[in-house]
Design a protein around this nucleic acid. Structure first.
Lengths: 219, 219
DNA sequence: GTCTATACCCCGATAGAC
DNA sequence: GTCTATCGGGGTATAGAC
């Protein structure tokens, strides 16, 4: 038995019932040892859970980096939104873990490791937005602020759905997510965006609804 | 000692350290009794925490209903966004509690009481959006879908800030929140919105940035 | 080094006495 | 109603076997 085995089993237990489902005794008995043996590999339960969080970040990152296979800035932005959605729907417990409050893990503040992961995520979204601006698909604004709008919107939509605030099935939610993304893009995109997006999504396996062809505020 | 005293102290303990900070023994000793005495008033710790959640909903609702003092649909929508922001910043632990996963309270599924509160929240946002559409301030679309966009965006922005994903102080975040709301509104508002919003916010105690006077996608 | 056995203290919850 | 006593189960520190 080594650290890998402990972490693997801890992840499995976590996704079934959250951090309360991960107990040192349960973990140990599942691995065929007694609880104190785990302390040869981990200093505390908190450390195990923090490593589970890191695993969640790793998997989420792998969903997002797949977006980099897109061949245009528009496609990479779209695939980022799809990666965010797919990860949240396929791994809801791990998704929750990405945004878990520190006190829920019994720790005052997150270690630098995790803060660094959050910063990388933020940077990833910034980069997707920046390259769309450079391609003329998004209005020229502070990329970081616009990225916060998109990230916030995606996270909020997914959070509300996962909490069961709305009586929707998964398919309905996917449609609502893309429709809502379309509304948000309507406020920050340029005229070139709709055509670029049409090219991207006509071969996609799902059907995001692009911004409605409707004039909007011009002040 | 009665149910009110228990609930009051439980809320105080919760906001200091989350659900782990609420223990029956701690609660009892703070109230000058022993732990089993609490079971005369509450069946379990879960029930106490569920009541704390209900308190959080009650306080959040009071922030939102203040928005109904606005004299126009535009003002009521703006004050709703302000209520959401103010509550989250002034009561971050209670805000987290509104969207806490059921398993974090040790319960399989939320009771009808709480689902009903969530439905009321959803209805409140729907109503604010619908009356703005009727006033011609928002583009005519499904009010429920548009409300989900606004609610999702507000919740996501606040969540990301509260998790400390971005190194911002509160003032910076307030500015970022309103700027982001402006971008989202840009995608769903009509030409009348900007002028209505200008009237509302010129007397407000904070300065939300209205949508930039910039032409956008017309497809 | 790695494990077991044991023990300590906190927890939620129950039974039964006053 | 509230107490004491108690149970089962947590996290974890220590001691000692291999």
């Amino acid at each position: 038995m080594d650290q890998q085995d402990i972490l693997k089993r801890a992840c499995e237990l976590y996704v079934t019932g959250g951090s309360e489902a991960v107990s040192m005794r349960r973990l140990a008995s599942d691995l065929g040892v007694t609880a104190p043996a785990l302390y040869r590999h981990y200093a505390s339960k908190e450390q195990i859970l923090l490593d589970v969080v890191m695993e969640a970040f790793g998997l989420f990152t792998s969903y997002l980096t797949q977006a980099l296979t897109g061949q245009t800035a528009a496609e990479r932005l779209y695939l980022s939104g799809k990666g965010h959605l797919d990860f949240a729907l396929q791994h809801p417990m791990l998704y929750e873990m990405l945004f878990i409050p520190a006190h829920a893990l019994g720790v005052e503040e997150f270690p630098e490791q995790i803060k660094s992961r959050l910063a990388s995520l933020s940077q990833f979204y910034d980069d997707r937005v920046r390259e769309c601006m450079e391609a003329g698909l998004l209005q020229a604004q502070d990329p970081h602020e616009v990225s916060l709008t998109l990230w916030g919107h995606a996270h909020g939509m997914v959070s509300i759905y996962l909490r069961g605030c709305h009586p929707m099935d998964e398919e309905q939610f996917r449609a609502a997510y893309w429709a809502s993304c379309g509304r948000v893009m309507q406020g920050i995109a340029t005229a070139d965006y709709a055509t670029a997006m049409h090219e991207v999504t006509e071969h996609a396996d799902i059907t995001p609804r692009p911004p409605a062809p409707q004039p909007t505020v011009t002040t």
